[in-house]
Design a protein around this nucleic acid. Sequence first.
DNA 1: GTGAAAGCGCTAACAG
DNA 2: CTGTTAGCGCTTTCAC
Lengths: 345, 345
Amino acid sequence: MADPDPPERRHPPTIYDVARAAGVAPSTVSRAFSRPGRVNAETAERIRRIAAELGYRTNPLARALPTGRTSMLACVIADITNPFYGEIIRGAESAAAEAGYVLLLVDAQESDRQEREALDRALPAVEGVVLTGSRMSDSAIRMTAKQRPTVVLNREVADVPSVVSDNAQGMRMAARHLADLGHRAVTYVAGPEASWADGMRWRSLREAAAELGLRLNRIGPYPPTIPGGTLAAEGVGRQGASAVIAYNDQLAIGLMRGLQAAGVRVPEDVSVVGFDNIFGAELVTPGLTTVAAPLRAQGRAAVRGLISVLGGARPRTAQAVVLPARLVVRASTGGPAPGRGHGRP
Amino acid sequence: MADPDPPERRHPPTIYDVARAAGVAPSTVSRAFSRPGRVNAETAERIRRIAAELGYRTNPLARALPTGRTSMLACVIADITNPFYGEIIRGAESAAAEAGYVLLLVDAQESDRQEREALDRALPAVEGVVLTGSRMSDSAIRMTAKQRPTVVLNREVADVPSVVSDNAQGMRMAARHLADLGHRAVTYVAGPEASWADGMRWRSLREAAAELGLRLNRIGPYPPTIPGGTLAAEGVGRQGASAVIAYNDQLAIGLMRGLQAAGVRVPEDVSVVGFDNIFGAELVTPGLTTVAAPLRAQGRAAVRGLISVLGGARPRTAQAVVLPARLVVRASTGGPAPGRGHGRP
DNA sequence: GTGAAAGCGCTAACAG
DNA sequence: CTGTTAGCGCTTTCAC
């Protein structure tokens, strides 16, 4: 009746335990795990078997010290409570897991300072970082890119690889959709001025509107939130536009609410299109027509890129990887009511 | 014109660099950071100043090797795309940051296997773990609790500390609300059978119904998702109930949709209450009356508990920390229509 | 109060 | 192909 797990043997087995049990040198055990092929096939097999029996697991911390390879990636998120990031995280997480990496999530809480501090704490522990919705300045981003391979999501920063969705194409689809419906003018409800995506979307819309012969207004900036949208409703009402495209879905949803509260019908009186296709876009009434970015694919692409750089590939900084967007048509868009859509009377 | 940052001096300064610059032994530098008080105040001050000048930062990996203190906590999430977890994560993250810890987020993707694998990879790197919405068995959870201090969220596991919201009280409030409105019978739309919370909510509702003299039905189980809810709508229709309480908000939202699609009005024909108050509950039409758990507080409480255990406190396994819930009344509940609410005719 | 020395568990030359 | 030997950067006895 021997104690099956005597208390004096509490620590997990090390490479030394395995080496002793297998009758080889510790370095051989190490090789058997990290550089199989550089060790006799049979020996390697035996070592692995014995290791398994002993329940040996290589200690990632100990490995990290001499090599710097922690098998961890940081993913910093502008706001972890924002549903927009959920799918991105999921994509990043799965790509990381496939490559044997663990994802360290860092919540920036929409604050530059918080973001830097949190990133600072996480940086030494990770091999690379994905920045999504970063509030940091371009130069701050380049700074961290100097310390660890970095890829930026939905933003372009000179000299730093990035993955973006095709805002231009998305905007073109949205504008064409509205034009097809018969609208002659559209109002853009702008998000944060500092936002790279906002600038991009606005410029794209301007081009698309020109091509399609749509008249264009812009109001804002507004906070990219539901309350921000209800705020914007007032401005939209004053414009008398028959169609609006909002910087993002939150803004669009708040906008619809504000409009409805003011007795303006969506889409009969004004059509609304959002951006991002967040969870919730299909929940509201009417369902929100929106430009859907391939969120999960973005997350995957970002960490894939990161991992290939870690594997020795040259970072692709010359130009962003752009992923296609698609238009999800729901009930918030329709033809203009007679007498609307011609700008101010 | 000397190169300000010669390439041969690339590595960040170590304790040895600081020691040399300060004219003390490396161990003294170490003490100055980890055990101030065990070193002469002036010396400590000087060391810290020099360290700052050199830009020295203690290498967490190197510290972790001898001590095991990685300053990282794992937070495993059943499904990172589920908005329900956003606030929990935020709370956990902030409490961790306050204590100087970094949060390692692990997405279980609603899969037992994925959860174990991911946790396995993360475990050696962290000092403690919080499990939220875990799909693992009680015994698997106890297993990991043996390896690292663990706290479970919204579930009770023998011998493992946990934080739960007051489901019983929440159910009581929901049931009373319905009773006050004049309903005489309520149907519970059940979630996953394996779910601890589902069992808890059902039992609580049974008690509350008994106290209030409400008749009670139960249908399900259904997947705790929006499609699951539309599925459930059929069953609810057959019951002819005037009021239903769903296991969670997704189910409730899907249910409302299914009902509305079938021409049943909410709340005129049937009142619906959900659970969790997810983002989206206020977006739907009508707004969903729901039991709100103090999500952020839960996340905070969980990592606080974890940290106090890491600090040497005895884990509180005897009984769960229970946090109060509240009822958020929106538009999905109202008085019963005449002729309804009396069960099958 | 401070210095010296011995590791933490693993990897990476370097010999053989 | 395998064993030996130094460390990675920090902490921690143990002496002085």
